[in-house]
Amino acid sequence: MEPDQTVPATEQRKSSFGDTAIWMRGLYMLLLVLAFGVAQMLLCVTTIAQFLWLLFSGEPNVQLTHFGRSLARWLADTALFLTGATDVKPFPWAPWPPAS
């Protein structure tokens, strides 16, 4: 199959370098990648705290469980945005996800 000879190659494929919306998404992505790293560290701290709580009390801490669930949902929502699976920006541009 031959390429369309009537349209110049530069017009056949449009560049997105001048698209402000894409650059803004890139800025959001950069900020969220940094926040994702902080959240991973927070998840590690929460995990250690929950383990210590289990070790000494024999049962999980309810507050840590709820926080862990909501943090996991935020991490999932952020990963969906970062990978382009959704255009919905997570917290802080949306409410913090519930622990349901």
Results as ranks from 00 to 15, higher is better:
Val88Trp: 00
Pro97Ser: 07
Leu52Asn: 04
Gly84Ile: 04
Leu75Asp: 01
Pro3His: 04
Thr83Asp: 04
Phe17Cys: 11
Ala9Phe: 10
Arg73Lys: 13
His66Asp: 15
Glu2Val: 13
Asn61Ile: 09
Ala9Tyr: 07
Ala49Lys: 13
Trp93Ser: 09
Ala76Asn: 06
Met29Arg: 10
Leu55Cys: 14
Ala99Asp: 12
Ser100Met: 00
Arg69Ala: 09
Leu80Ile: 01
Gly58Thr: 10
Gly84Leu: 04
Ala85Asn: 08
Val62Phe: 06
Arg73Glu: 11
Phe67Ala: 11
Ala72Gly: 14
Thr10Trp: 10
Arg69Ile: 03
Thr10Gly: 00
Met29Pro: 02
Phe17Leu: 15
Asp19Asn: 15
Lys89Met: 07
Ser15Ile: 08
Leu75Met: 15
Leu43Tyr: 05
Phe51Glu: 00
Phe56Lys: 09
Gly37Pro: 05
Arg73Met: 08
Val38Ile: 15
Asp19Gly: 01
Phe36Glu: 06
Ala99Ser: 14
Phe56Leu: 14
Phe91Trp: 13
Ala76Cys: 05
Thr83Lys: 04
Pro60Gln: 13
Glu59Phe: 02
Arg69Gly: 06
Ala9Trp: 07
Gly58Met: 07
Pro98Val: 07
Pro92Thr: 06
Ala76Ser: 09
Ala49Asn: 12
Thr46Ser: 11
Leu30Cys: 06
Gln63Met: 12
Phe17His: 13
Phe56Ile: 14
Pro95His: 02
Phe67Asp: 06
Thr65Cys: 03
Val38Leu: 09
Ser15Asn: 10
Trp96Asp: 01
Leu32Phe: 07
Arg13His: 13
Leu71Arg: 03
Thr47Cys: 06
Lys14Pro: 00
Leu71Tyr: 01
Trp53Cys: 05
Ala76Arg: 03
Trp96Leu: 01
Leu27Cys: 04
Leu30Ala: 14
Trp96Ser: 00
Leu80Glu: 03
Met41Trp: 03
Asp4Met: 11
Pro98His: 02
Phe91Gln: 02
Ala35Pro: 00
Leu52Gln: 06
Ala76Lys: 05
Ile22Cys: 06
Ala72Asp: 08
Gly58Ile: 06
Ser16Leu: 12
Asn61Lys: 12
Pro98Ala: 08
Val7Phe: 03
Met1Lys: 11
Leu80Gln: 02
Leu80Lys: 00
Gln12His: 03
Phe67Arg: 10
Pro60Ala: 15
Val33Lys: 08
Phe56Trp: 13
Arg13Cys: 09
Leu64Phe: 14
Asp4Lys: 11
Gly37Thr: 10
Leu42Lys: 10
Val33Cys: 04
Trp93Gly: 03
Arg13Ser: 11
Phe67Glu: 08
Leu42Thr: 09
